[in-house]
């Protein structure tokens, strides 16, 4: 049996008196597209943080491609092929768009510790940065400071940086929140356009987006995994109707 891309094994995250994630197990196969659903405070971001390494589970294990990474730093997981975006946009606000992309592209290169040559004097990295900027087209221009970018473009940059190094596992935390209909559509297009072997987990509140990008849906509620099912199963399940569609946003 081939290893799962992401194998979350009975993880718990305890914040003081609050059990934000309470014994969740989740297996996502290589190349699978999965959407995580659940009302505010269900523990979706906390679960992402344990997969990405931003948080270490109180108990339980996280495995990527069959390897236990529970104790590994986020940067090690990035080198294993994991990339992510953040629900709250997480960029380098005082740098330009180009510099942000540059940092993303450089992150997995051996030259990232170089101290002598100027950062701009690495042709292969500069080329890749130029390709990404051409592909994603930031209307304000690559030399715009990120803090002066529109919200929509900041979200776009967040995404561009996550896929810059062609990750094998991609975690997207509410990639379309706050975006216009057109912007949302282009995000959907991007996710669907990713190479087939890329494993993608998306936290998404917009059901249209969710149904467009994934075949399987996992529902969290109060830190627990309620169920995993297809679109039809999710829509038919009464508990889910009550938990999510009833009282969610």
């Amino acid at each position: 049996m081939s290893a799962q891309a992401v194998d979350v094994d009975n993880v718990v995250m305890q914040f003081g008196g609050l059990r934000a994630v309470d014994g969740v197990s989740l297996r996502v196969g290589v190349g699978e597209r999965r959407v995580l659903l659940g009302p505010n405070g269900a523990g979706k971001t906390t679960l992402f943080n344990m997969i990405g390494g931003q948080l270490q589970p109180t108990s339980g294990a996280v495995r990527l491609f069959g390897r236990d990474v529970s104790k590994q730093n986020p940067y090690r997981r990035a080198h294993d092929g994991l990339a992510r975006t953040f629900q709250i946009t997480s960029l380098f606000p005082d740098m330009t768009v180009g510099e942000n992309v540059h940092l993303a592209v450089r992150a997995l290169s051996t030259s990232r510790f170089g101290m002598i040559r100027p950062a701009g004097a690495y042709p292969r990295i500069a080329e890749r940065v130029a390709d990404i900027l051409a592909e994603w087209r930031f209307p304000a221009g690559a030399d715009t400071r990120v803090s002066n970018l529109s919200y929509g473009d900041q979200r776009k940059l967040e995404l561009a940086m996550a896929v810059a190094n062609r990750p094998r596992i991609l975690l997207l935390d509410e990639p379309t929140s706050g975006l216009s209909a057109t912007e949302t559509e282009s995000v959907v297009g991007l996710i669907k356009g990713l190479p087939e072997d890329v494993t993608v987990i998306v936290v998404e509140h917009d059901m249209d987006v969710a149904f467009a990008v994934a075949d399987l849906f996992t529902i969290l509620h109060n830190g627990r995994l309620v169920t995993t099912g297809t679109a039809a199963e999710v829509q038919a399940n009464e508990d889910i109707q009550r938990i999510y569609f009833g009282e969610g946003e």
């Binding site: 990405g52 390494g53 931003q54 730093n73 986020p74 940067y75 990035a78 080198h79 990339a83 992510r84 953040f86 997480s90 960029l91 380098f92 606000p93 005082d94 740098m95 940092l103 993303a104 992150a107 997995l108 990232r112 940086m161 190094n165």
Partner: peptide, 13 residues
Amino acid sequence: QNPDRMAALGYNV
């Protein structure tokens, strides 16, 4: 500016 994003990108902060 943003150590958490640097770590997520792959830098050993």
